[in-house]
Structure formats: C-alpha cells, structure tokens
Lab assay of single mutants.
Amino acid sequence: TTVKVNGTKYKFDTPEEAQKFAKKAADKYNLKVVVDGDDLRVE
C-alpha cells in the first residue's frame, strides 16, 4: 500500500500502517485522506 503526500510516495507493508500514517499526515497538514484504489492520497 502506498500513501502519497505532497507528491512523495511512502510504501507500507500493511494497509493499517498506511492508514495510520495517512491520518497523521492529514491531521498535520490539515488535509484529508483520499482512497485511490488500493492506495491512499493525502490532499
């Protein structure tokens, strides 16, 4: 599972880890998590 934040992709072994990271990033930058198929985007 990958998470894309500000054009940078981060790869995670499990969707749970990816979800946690995406949520933290979204909170930090005051953005929202967008599900894109198997991957997540923070925008």
Rank of each mutant, 00 (worst) to 15 (best):
T1F: 15
T1M: 09
T1W: 15
T1C: 09
T2N: 06
T2S: 08
T2D: 03
T2E: 05
T2F: 12
T2Q: 06
V3C: 03
V3M: 01
V3Y: 00
V3Q: 00
V3I: 03
V3F: 01
V3S: 01
V3H: 01
K4T: 15
K4A: 11
V5W: 14
V5P: 01
V5H: 05
V5A: 03
V5M: 12
V5Q: 01
V5T: 02
V5N: 01
V5L: 14
N6P: 01
N6H: 13
N6W: 14
N6G: 12
N6I: 06
N6Y: 12
N6A: 08
N6F: 15
N6R: 11
G7C: 10
G7W: 05
G7F: 06
G7M: 06
G7Y: 05
G7A: 05
G7S: 05
G7H: 06
T8Y: 14
T8D: 05
T8E: 07
T8F: 14
T8S: 08
K9A: 13
K9H: 11
K9E: 12
K9Q: 11
K9G: 06
K9D: 09
K9N: 10
K9S: 14
Y10R: 02
Y10I: 05
Y10N: 00
Y10V: 03
Y10T: 02
Y10G: 00
Y10K: 01
K11S: 11
K11F: 14
K11L: 11
K11Q: 11
F12P: 00
F12W: 01
F12V: 00
F12D: 00
D13S: 13
D13C: 11
T14A: 04
T14H: 04
T14N: 09
T14P: 01
T14W: 02
T14I: 04
T14Y: 04
P15N: 07
P15T: 08
P15D: 05
E16P: 02
E16K: 06
E16N: 06
E16W: 08
E16S: 08
E16I: 08
E17H: 05
E17M: 08
E17D: 09
E17L: 08
A18M: 02
A18G: 02
A18P: 00
A18N: 00
A18E: 00
A18T: 01
A18Y: 01
A18R: 01
A18W: 02
Q19A: 12
Q19S: 08
Q19D: 06
Q19C: 15
Q19I: 14
Q19Y: 15
Q19F: 15
Q19H: 12
K20C: 11
K20E: 14
K20I: 13
K20P: 00
K20G: 07
F21L: 01
F21D: 00
F21K: 00
F21P: 00
F21R: 00
A22T: 01
A22D: 01
A22E: 01
A22P: 00
A22I: 04
A22G: 01
K23V: 07
K23F: 09
K23G: 05
K23S: 08
K23L: 09
K23Y: 11
K23M: 10
K23E: 09
K23T: 08
K23C: 12
K24T: 11
K24L: 14
K24M: 14
K24A: 14
K24D: 14
K24R: 13
K24C: 15
K24H: 12
K24W: 15
A25I: 15
A25K: 08
A25F: 15
A25D: 02
A25C: 15
A25G: 02
A25H: 12
A25M: 15
A26N: 02
A26Q: 04
A26Y: 03
A26W: 03
D27W: 10
D27R: 12
D27C: 14
D27Y: 10
D27A: 13
D27L: 13
D27V: 10
D27M: 12
K28D: 08
K28V: 08
K28S: 07
K28T: 08
K28G: 06
K28F: 14
K28Y: 14
K28C: 15
Y29Q: 05
Y29S: 05
Y29F: 11
Y29T: 04
Y29P: 04
Y29L: 13
N30L: 06
N30H: 12
N30C: 13
N30W: 07
N30G: 15
N30P: 03
N30D: 09
N30A: 08
N30E: 06
L31W: 12
L31I: 06
L31A: 13
L31Q: 06
L31P: 02
L31R: 05
K32R: 12
K32D: 08
K32L: 12
K32H: 11
K32T: 13
V33P: 01
V33M: 05
V33Y: 04
V33H: 01
V33K: 00
V34C: 07
V34W: 10
V34I: 13
V34G: 04
V34Q: 07
V34S: 07
V34A: 06
V34E: 07
V35C: 10
V35L: 11
V35P: 08
V35M: 11
V35K: 10
D36T: 05
D36E: 09
D36G: 04
D36C: 10
D36P: 02
D36R: 05
G37S: 04
G37D: 05
G37R: 04
G37T: 04
G37W: 03
G37F: 04
G37C: 05
D38W: 08
D38E: 11
D38F: 11
D38S: 10
D39C: 15
D39S: 12
D39A: 09
D39T: 14
D39M: 14
D39V: 14
D39L: 14
L40G: 02
L40R: 02
L40A: 03
L40H: 02
R41G: 04
R41N: 08
R41T: 10
R41F: 08
R41Y: 09
V42S: 02
V42N: 02
V42I: 10
V42D: 03
V42M: 07
V42E: 03
V42G: 02
V42T: 03
E43S: 09
E43A: 08
E43Q: 09
E43G: 12
E43R: 06
E43P: 03
E43F: 09
E43Y: 09
E43T: 10
